[in-house]
């Protein structure tokens, strides 16, 4: 179990509101260095909101969210976000940029030189299983949905951030491609030693990738445990999810 000191991310009784509506509340948990925490829950249960609290796209209304022992509200938002790779739910690739430009956004913001950028792009495309020669100069609308999601993952990894947030990166894929990507990603995450928060509503995916699973229901974290413990959980919502496996 992670301790306070080694926690890369820590939620302390955090809640988030928008337009008078409480989106999440009473979140308290820690994520350790190198861990892959999978956030599971039904649609609208607060998974994306939780990710946005980490990279300060949202400020907590109550409580605090700490990244590397510092409250996000004390972080310079720009510096914080450059340390956190982010794969957003609908990939969010820039339609006016080529694959290469999309992947190299953060390295460019960070002022890398051209040669280093080019090498990194090739390396990342390889990593996510796309041939640099035929994909680097395409535009997002010239890619399939699955290819776009791979590029989205590559983009999040580009500047080698220690933390990566992934919001349903493999949503809207056919089951075969999805399983393939999950397998590749499981290998990848083990070799990269990154702290990863991964959102899904697919329980199979959660078990395949997680070092721990956090379960959301109506804006609250109702269960957080390692996959084996999760499978035995007494929690009603957790049981409902596990039963959907069979």
């Amino acid at each position: 179990m992670p301790t306070n000191d080694s926690a890369v991310i820590e939620f302390r009784d955090a809640s988030a509101r928008a337009g008078g509506k409480t989106m999440v509340e009473g979140l308290s948990f820690q994520i350790a260095q190198g861990e892959t925490l999978v956030l599971l829950g039904r649609s609208g249960s607060g998974k994306t909101t939780t990710l946005k609290l980490i990279n300060r796209l949202l400020d907590p209304a109550e409580g605090a969210v700490c990244v590397e022992q510092k409250s996000t509200t004390e972080w310079d938002a720009i510096r914080l976000r450059r340390r956190i790779g982010y794969v957003i739910q609908e990939t969010g690739l820039f339609p006016h940029f080529t694959v290469e430009r999309n992947i190299s956004v953060v390295p460019r913001l960070e002022g890398w030189d051209e040669a280093r950028i080019r090498a990194r792009v090739v390396e990342l495309l390889e990593l996510v299983g796309l041939d640099a020669g035929s994909f680097a100069h395409r535009y997002p609308h010239e890619l399939s949905g699955g290819q776009r999601q791979r590029v989205g993952v590559a983009r999040a990894l580009a500047a080698d951030p220690p933390i990566i947030l992934m919001d349903e990166p493999f949503g809207a894929l056919d089951p075969l491609t999805r399983a393939e990507l999950q397998r590749e990603f499981a290998q990848l995450s083990r070799s990269l030693h990154k702290t990863i928060v991964f959102v899904t509503h697919d329980v199979r995916e959660a078990f395949a990738l997680a070092s721990r699973i956090g379960l959301f229901k109506d804006g609250r974290l109702v269960e957080i445990s390692e996959p084996a413990a999760f499978a035995r959980s007494e929690n009603e919502e957790a049981r409902a999810f596990c039963e959907s496996l069979n």
Binding site: R81, Y86, Q89, T91, F94, L109
Partner: peptide, 22 residues
């Protein structure tokens, strides 16, 4: 697109960078 804008912010673009580049 809101998603594109959010991606830009999430990647740590300043307001100016987001305006000029996206």
């Amino acid at each position: 697109d809101a998603g594109v804008r959010e991606a830009a912010r999430g990647m740590g673009m300043t307001d100016w960078q987001m305006l000029a580049q996206v």
